[in-house]
Nucleic acid binder design. Structure first.
Length: 259
DNA sequence: ATGGTCGTGAGACGA
């Protein structure tokens, strides 16, 4: 079973690239972030045509998340428990697997903008709410995968130039602590279960030829509960789509589970 | 060089 995540930065613009990628990488589930379209504009038929089910929650201009899957899902959730948030950042569904139900949670975590921003306060609050909700999800679903754009680079090795980024959003100690609190629920960063090339990133700024210089961050993650960690046999970043014409600034991350 | 580039949607704003 392969699970993937990709922040597409507008599904309107990136739909052809998503379809192409799925033809080459027929994963069992793909979480998408930053759809930037309303529910009525979601291109369901295009995914149906290539054999994928879809669940989504959209929003005009900003945010929006979806999960595409080979098998239909159950128990779709579009909120973090009781946390009231007009921003559409979470969707979850339960998929079948040989080992039993796998809960897939797709998240588009807040960016935070800057350490002195109200958006940074919102980001940290949002992560607390996510943690509390994931704790209850984990109790209900032992096989839990939480994938998406976390907008947090877990460690300096996930940053192209730690000195330049120090004191900035995505790397600050409170943000890294927020991510560690998710890990502390009993989740593992699938990417770090394996030996990886140095300077592995999942996002590169459009500006300053960030991709060409490999000036990136690893901020897109797949977190796995212990029963899934035990069967995870690979986790890789596919840099290919970042080299496309008119690319997203993020590229997919894929985890392989072998039951 | 304190900027740069995208996407959205029609001027900034968010990332």
């Amino acid at each position: 079973m392969k699970l993937a995540t990709w922040n597409v930065n507008s599904l309107n613009v990136r739909l052809p690239q998503v379809l192409d990628w799925l033809r080459d990488n027929p994963v069992d589930a793909l979480g998408l972030q930053e759809l930037k379209l309303t529910d009525d504009k979601f291109p369901q038929q295009a995914f149906t045509d290539i054999g994928y089910h879809a669940v989504w929650t959209g929003q005009k201009t900003y945010n929006g998340v979806a999960i595409l899957s080979r098998e239909p899902g159950e128990d779709v959730t579009r909120d973090i428990g009781n946390y009231t948030d007009i921003q559409r950042r979470v969707i979850a569904t339960t998929l079948p697997s040989p080992a039993g139900p796998v809960r897939v949670v797709c998240v588009y975590c807040p960016n935070g903008q800057a350490l002195d921003s109200d958006k940074y306060v919102y980001k940290l609050e949002w992560f607390l709410a996510l943690r509390d909700w994931l704790k209850s999800e984990l109790a209900r679903y032992p096989r839990l995968a939480v994938l998406g754009d976390y907008n947090i680079a877990p460690a300096d090795e996930d940053v192209h130039d730690p000195a330049k980024w120090e004191g900035g959003v995505h790397v600050s100690p409170p943000e890294r602590d927020a991510l560690k609190q998710l890990i502390g629920l009993g989740l593992s960063d699938a990417f770090r279960l394996f030996e990886q090339p140095p300077k592995s990133f999942s996002w590169w700024d459009y500006r300053m030829m960030g991709f060409r210089r490999n000036a990136g961050l690893r901020i897109d993650h797949i977190l796995l509960s212990d029963p899934l960690r035990e069967v995870c046999t690979a986790c890789d970043i596919d840099k290919g789509p970042r080299g496309n014409t008119q690319p997203s600034d993020h590229t997919p991350v894929i985890a392989t589970l072998t039951f």
